[in-house]
Amino acid sequence: MTAIAAHETVLEASGPRPRQVSAARIGVYAFLITAALFFALPLYVMLVTSLKGMPEVRLGQIFAFPSAPTFEPWIKAWSTACTGRTCEGLTPGFLNSVKITVPSVIISIIAAALNGYALSFWKFRGANFFFGLLIFGAFVPYQVVIFPLIIFMREVGLFATLPGIIIVHTIFGMPILTLLYRNYFSALPEELFKAARVDGAGFWRIFFYVIMPMSVPITIVAIILQVTGIWNDFLFGIVFAGRENLPMTVQLNNIVQTTTGIREHNVNMAATILAAAVPLAVYFISGRWFVRGIAAGAVKG
């Protein structure tokens, strides 16, 4: 106590510090506000552009607030904008993304939780070798393994189908999710697991009745990670989903890059916001959980 008090008197005694600090404070806020403006600007531009009519867009005032805000571009982007051959807007893409994302998230999380559970509590011979290999896979560029996967999917008749793209998302989500669950499980008290064993519970019972109910926090993180990741995916969607199941990102790109006729920037920006809406909603609602997901995913095994 006395030592702390002594330190504080020393600090207070050091002359012109307060003014120096306040100048530094201004600097801190000036920098952070400038940075925040840089990051916020594109979202602002997207929004105001999407609410303008084309004559106003052509004025070349990208930052100006719309003089007569209109939702026409949003309606067009959602239901009538053309993607190369069809003119149904983003609606089919949205539905496809839902059809891809929901099962992919559920299946990939169950598979990864099982992996992590087996790795943490039921070590079998070679388990660490397979895990190491899987983690190595997290660093391998997709392009190295995408062609063999195409051939495999074609052989089993799942190329360009909905189940096919779901399997692909499950595969590529596996390294990071398995790591996430393994790290979480190895921090759980082992006595709990042992008590369940003594009570005669087996591999599956312990998993479903003891471990999974305790995994709610990590599962929330995994869901956030997977929903945003799979919804935002472009590469796997365009390669594996097939023409009938193209996700929203692919259709968005098709709408914007379609070069026939004049480019409707307001419709394009409305479409861009619509495609970003789901992950943005997840992000704003989840708040600190999202950050936790990044930190958890970034920690090396």
Binding site: N232, D233, A275
Partner: peptide, 13 residues
């Protein structure tokens, strides 16, 4: 929240 939101969006966006 402002600095990190771009990371939540697709690279296409």
């Amino acid at each position: 929240t402002i600095i990190l939101y771009p990371y939540a969006m697709s690279l296409i966006v």
